[in-house]
């Protein structure tokens, strides 16, 4: 079934996931995952941000509108924020945004949040794998995706 949704038809469909990674923890965690050669699916498109608290909920919605099949926002663990409380503040926004998107019918698994520290290369790989699996099982995003009208 999923294969049919693949634009190329032959290989397994790979979702596109926009990942907003905080510079201090999760981005470094992703780096470590790479250096450590932990395998994870090539599904994410990383956008480095100074802090998860700097991720305006708008960015997430906008990513979905631009055709992301999923969005992952990852920051430092609570208490570890480089800016002291950025991730705590972000958490409230994300909790409400996640609820709102679900409320209007966006599949909850499309938007995910995680805390990944600079030392958690393996966790980063696991998170990406988990998020990718969940999004893959949902199939390509259809809702909220803006379609072109030109030729």
């Amino acid at each position: 079934m999923r294969e049919e949704l693949s634009p190329r038809g032959t290989e397994a469909w790979q979702p596109k996931i926009v990942a907003f990674l905080c510079h201090w923890c999760s981005y470094a965690g992703a780096d470590l995952a790479g250096i450590s050669r932990f395998q994870y699916p090539p599904s994410i498109r990383v956008i480095r941000v100074p802090c998860s608290g700097a991720v305006n909920p708008f960015y997430i919605v906008k990513a979905l509108q631009c055709g992301a099949d999923g969005v992952l926002v990852s920051g430092c663990h609570p208490g570890d924020c480089h800016y002291l409380a950025g991730n705590y503040l972000a958490r409230r926004k994300f909790a409400l945004l996640k609820g709102l998107l679900e409320h209007v019918g966006i599949e909850p698994d499309r938007v995910q949040f995680s805390w990944v520290s600079a030392a958690e290369g393996q966790k980063f790989a696991d998170v990406v794998k988990m998020v990718t699996d969940r999004v893959r099982s949902l199939g390509p995003a259809e809702k909220l995706v803006k379609r072109g009208r030109g030729r």
Partner: peptide, 25 residues
Amino acid sequence: RWIGGSDDETDTMVFHLMRAMHLAG
């Protein structure tokens, strides 16, 4: 330009979602 001004359904959706989100709390 964050959202388009046409009657594209997703633009209107994003407008309403973000308007609501901006008023959250």
